[in-house]
């Protein structure tokens, strides 16, 4: 079931069931990696890879909610940073603190998402600017809270989600907890986007706001909810990345654009109306696989930047071309 077919069932009937090119891209990239480095085909190889990509994959799937509704969320990276810094400040080396800190961080995330949504919906500030302002503000808040440098460690109970591997499992030998998180949250986000009324309204709002309003969709509520979902996934991504990497003051910087890139590679249409959670997760995998491959090829950082830029433009240009050929 391809996501594109949902809002436009009529269009789906006309064309043959076709596969989103991002899946082909991911398969090709992974094949190339295995050819270059056979160790990647072993469980430690591909599990490490999946573990690495989990934070970005969950984040992108959440950011997709805002993209499908027709907006941008640039604040997600700063929410990740705030989550990690805030948790380390509050934990004060108490392993039991994790059980109240994560729910508290989710609440803070929800409030941030709510503010983003309210500012966009009622103050009519374009989401690009509203969430840019939020990004700058939250980075400042994280700095103020910590005094500019991390002030505490994350307890092992907190780092469990991003760092721990369950070992001695038959066939796959080991299973990182992060990968379980990816499957669980990926499924929830897929269900929310593609199997609920909310998901349909999200597509409708992104496709044409006025039409959706006329059709009785509570546009403001839908958009605000999208920002809340995005912020909540950013908190989850922060917990996982913090778990994997430990505390640093700029841990989330740059993730906002990576998330948008992953969604775009997965075929999401900026300014709304189109997007699929599985394809976005595949987009995140593709992005990370590209990095891994370029690394294996021993290409210097500058070359990686150029390749990334070309792929970004190429992916969108290709999607537009395909849509045009399919008669939109």
């Amino acid at each position: 079931m391809s996501a594109q077919s949902l809002p436009r069932p009529a269009a789906a009937k006309r064309s043959l069931p076709k596969i989103n090119p991002v899946y082909v891209l991911v398969a090709a990239l992974i094949l190339a990696i295995i050819v270059m480095n056979p160790a990647f085909g072993e469980p430690t190889g591909y599990m490490n890879f999946l573990k690495r990509v989990t934070a970005l994959a969950i984040l992108s799937a959440g950011a997709l909610y805002v993209i499908v509704s027709g907006g941008f969320d640039l604040s997600v990276g700063s929410i990740m940073t705030l989550t990690v810094i805030g948790s380390s400040m509050l934990a004060s080396n108490d392993p039991n603190s994790t059980y109240w800190i994560i729910p508290l961080m989710l609440c803070i995330g929800a409030v941030i998402g709510l503010i983003n949504g309210l500012v966009v919906s009622y103050l009519k500030v374009p989401s690009l600017i509203a969430t840019l302002g939020m990004m700058i503000t939250l980075n400042g808040v994280a700095f103020m809270w910590s005094g500019g440098a991390p002030r505490g460690y994350l307890p092992d109970t907190f780092r469990f989600f991003g760092r721990y591997n369950i070992t001695d499992i038959p066939v796959i030998t080991l299973l990182p907890v992060a990968v379980i998180c990816l499957v669980v949250f990926g499924t929830i986000l897929w269900w929310g986007m593609h199997r609920t009324n909310f998901g349909r309204m999200l597509h409708a709002v992104g496709d044409n706001q006025q039409a959706a309003r006329l059709a009785g969709v509570p546009v403001e509520r839908v958009r605000i909810s999208a920002f809340v979902v995005s912020a909540l996934t950013a908190v989850l991504a922060g917990v996982i990345l913090g778990g994997r990497a430990g505390v640093s003051v700029d841990i989330g910087s740059g993730f906002e654009l990576q998330a948008i890139t992953a969604a775009v590679i997965g075929g999401a249409q900026l300014l709304g109306g189109r997007g699929s959670v599985p394809a976005t997760i595949a987009g995140a995998l593709a992005l990370e696989a590209i990095f891994t491959l370029l690394n294996l090829l021993g290409l210097a950082q500058p070359v990686r930047l150029v390749v990334q830029g070309l792929i970004l433009i190429g992916a969108v240009a290709f999607a537009t071309y395909q849509r045009k050929r399919a008669g939109r």
Partner: peptide, 27 residues
């Protein structure tokens, strides 16, 4: 650090100052 927080708020507030009365939907 306080500077950063204030700058973020000022950007949003300044834009809201124009936009809040707009009737058009925004992206």
């Amino acid at each position: 650090f306080v500077k950063q927080v204030l700058r973020g708020i000022i950007i949003v507030a300044a834009v809201a100052f124009y936009a809040a009365r707009s009737k058009r939907p925004v992206a």
